[in-house]
Nucleic acid binder design. Structure first.
Lengths: 227, 227
DNA sequence: CGGGAGGTTGACGTATTTCAACGACCGTGG
DNA sequence: CCACGGTCGTTGAAATACGTCAACCTCCCG
């Protein structure tokens, strides 16, 4: 009756897997209905224009989804962490790309098996629906950030959001490079770097290691840079 | 079984209506399952923080949905035209606002009646799902625009998109003010104005009336400013 | 030890914002 | 019918925040 299969889709499974059986195991774990894959850092899961046969759920690691302009300008629309779904499409082709930011494990669900998934795992449809609704909400938040926030505000929100997503308190281990942060926030990597060091000088944060580890010293001040 | 009701929602119906009966009319027009309302130009349909009881479909006119920062900076995430659904929420409260850009007619659907809607009008769920998927795709496109495009590219895309949405060929009647365009594209109204007059000087477009009517003289050049 | 990737820092230029004034249009009311 | 006020749009001048270009440094791995 309901043709959700026509509205949802995903991507083709990547090569180099770490496969697992699990298909048609009604009543069991949803994860058993898809194929587990391990993707190396930097590897592509799918790319703009690829046929969209599969969608994914992140088990561990980080995935970035992005769009490119012809001259290589890039906009990352989202980072996906453990538990997130990504790769739905309305058409047969992907309208964006996905790459692993670090070594990442995902489950790939075939778009064509969507109906049986919903039948065998009733909670699956709900999970997907709320994934889409929250993707939309996140997207609206991010448009506000991209269109109207200053670099300082962008970075502050990015740090707080990332800390929340990674369930870390004060010390966060950023999985992505400065260039990724820049393409996510609509800045250049230089501006990202400068803003971080300035925040460090101001005592808001503390940068460790190669700059991948950030300590949030003054959450209150960071939060005031929002709203 | 499927709890879509929990994942979808909308806004409270606005006052000043132009009501119509139509409820529980299985097999009939979906529109009969909601309440028709006429909203005056500039009027608010719902606002950030309102309880989300209703979602909408535009029948005629234009609606803008937006988010505000505390200092009144605004980001319009979308303009909604005839046929578009808007106002879904994952939570009980609206996370964005909606106002009529011009006199607009909408149908309001109660979030609580979602299940019966799906039962009585099977195609309804599909319509909603594809509305959400295409909202997401639009959002990703718009993030690319906001984060990475120049004012010229932004305006060019805006004009072409709007022409496509309004099903006009060369002459489009913009329903919104310059400030709305600016808040949609992440620019100032001055930059919007300057860019339009420059395009006019370059022969790409022609501005008529109070600047609300735009003639697309050179679609090819405008399209080249994208990709 | 060498090379490359990623990150930081500096100097500089400029595109866009900001601030401000002006003008066109519209509706209202005297 | 015209004057008035308000909204919206345009244009100008000036300031500056961010991007660009470039050098340098650290870390890491072969």
């Amino acid at each position: 009756m309901l043709n959700y299969a026509a509205a949802l889709a995903g991507s083709r499974p990547s090569f180099r897997t770490g496969a697992q059986p699990g298909r048609d195991v009604p009543g069991g774990d949803i994860h058993e209905a898809g194929e587990r894959m391990i993707v190396a850092s930097g590897e592509e899961l799918f790319s703009e224009g690829d046929t969209a046969e599969v969608f994914y759920k992140v088990i561990s690691g980080t995935v970035r989804t992005s769009k490119l302009l012809s001259d290589a300008r890039r906009q990352i629309d989202s980072f996906h962490y453990a538990g997130d779904f990504f790769g739905f499409e309305g058409a047969d082709e992907h309208s964006f790309s996905a790459e692993a930011v670090e070594e990442t494990t995902v489950i790939a669900f075939r778009r064509s098996s969507f109906r049986s998934l919903v039948r065998d795992y009733p909670e699956f449809a709900d999970q997907l629906m709320s994934a889409m609704v929250s993707s939309l909400q996140r997207a609206r938040d991010h448009m506000l950030l991209l269109g109207r926030k200053t670099p300082q505000e962008k970075i502050a929100k990015f740090l707080l959001d990332t800390a929340a997503r990674l369930r870390k308190d004060d010390r966060i281990e950023l999985p992505m490079r400065r260039a990724d942060i820049a393409d996510y926030l609509g800045l250049t990597k230089e501006t990202v770097s400068r803003t971080l060091t300035q925040m460090s000088r101001d005592g808001l944060i503390r940068l460790e290691a190669i700059g991948r580890t950030v300590l949030l010293n003054d959450r209150t001040s960071l939060q005031q840079m929002n709203a």
